[in-house]
Write a protein that binds this DNA or RNA. Sequence first.
DNA 1: TCGAAAAAGTGATACATATCACAAAATATT
DNA 2: AATATTTTGTGATATGTATCACTTTTTCGA
Lengths: 225, 225
Amino acid sequence: MKNECLNCACVMKSMQALKSCQLEQLESNHAIVQFQKGDPIIKQGMFSTNVVFLKRGLVKIHIAGPYHEQIVRLAKAPTYLGLPTTIGDKINQYSVTAVQDSEVCFIDLNIFKRVLEENKDFSSYIILELCKSELESYRRCANRTQKQTRGNLADVLLDLSENVFESTEFVLPISQSDLGNLVDASRESVNRLLSELMNDGIIRMEGRKIEILNKYSLQLISQNG
Amino acid sequence: MKNECLNCACVMKSMQALKSCQLEQLESNHAIVQFQKGDPIIKQGMFSTNVVFLKRGLVKIHIAGPYHEQIVRLAKAPTYLGLPTTIGDKINQYSVTAVQDSEVCFIDLNIFKRVLEENKDFSSYIILELCKSELESYRRCANRTQKQTRGNLADVLLDLSENVFESTEFVLPISQSDLGNLVDASRESVNRLLSELMNDGIIRMEGRKIEILNKYSLQLISQNG
DNA sequence: TCGAAAAAGTGATACATATCACAAAATATT
DNA sequence: AATATTTTGTGATATGTATCACTTTTTCGA
């Protein structure tokens, strides 16, 4: 009987493979669940007792701000989800929702913590990831607040193209309203700015299908106001 | 010969005391340095090879945004400084500057990492801190971007009063210009809003000395626009 | 397949806040 | 003590974006 965890990125990403006894602990205390586009995976305000690992798919990480929902970022598989909110607080401090059909592995928090304690390399890896992720969150926040919407929108389009879909042509995984929540703007502003980008021949849009025609212009817009 | 680290909050904060051999490792690989108000402690863009622990004083953590410097937050002793930027990247991704005379302990990163690996409780503690800090940074970002300046300014004043100085009367540790960098507003706006708070009898100001006259009003302003 | 709900498109208007341009005050610096 | 530099105070103006109010289109569920 082969151990399912053995080839899972959850483990692979931690450079040093876990010992087989640790693998077994994970194996017997995890659950793999399928989620459909739109399904909530982690819900802010609920108890969290599981570490969540995204095996396949794309999700949005979002938090209830003082006035509206803010999308912190999109995350694509393979990656841990909600490590901070699972370890940092018994109650989820943010939500995670599938924006594409996704496959998720739930790992019992206590087991995860035990493996973390038993395996130095694994815990070093997790500490490193947490540090990087916090750095990233500082940078994101500085950009969001200082750039104006046009620049942030350009950033999102570039990120989707380069990192998420790795193509100049892709289908927007979220609504314009959510795009607004991701760049701290209203749905209407996003719409107007997208139209503008179309009129300027920088992108082509048909429904949610987007093609980036002029990446260089987008980069300029991202950098300047 | 007593070990200086023994009673330092750097160690104390990690619930379980370190073993004496670990204490000795820290003892022989740390350096305590005094900083004056205005002195840079960590500089963005420079190599980082030390974990930094703030023993005494008050600092600002700031990052160069696309257009101007942004103050991520103020941090008061005792606390680790720049764990994410020290562990997460060889090059500092943000700066830390003393805003009051401060005392800082530099610990060699390799030693720190070794102790981290050798002591489960310590590494659990650090992981927990990192998670909490990331949660906090999400929350802060959502507030900053969604609230308008008046509310953010009220937040800062409340935070200074309640958490930093623990008094309704205190001396502003930073300039109005920096206050602007902390609430994502221009120096002029901050100035006008402070005047407004004075005229409304919510605070009293004489130079940088501030007294909060009506905490409840400030809380209201923090919550509403 | 039809009706309802959600998403997208677009004009008019309002407003918070940036920016510019100075003057006055307070702090450093030599 | 004298001078330079930083900080603060305040008006006038410009502008990016939110908000409101509607229509059209697309998507979804019964």
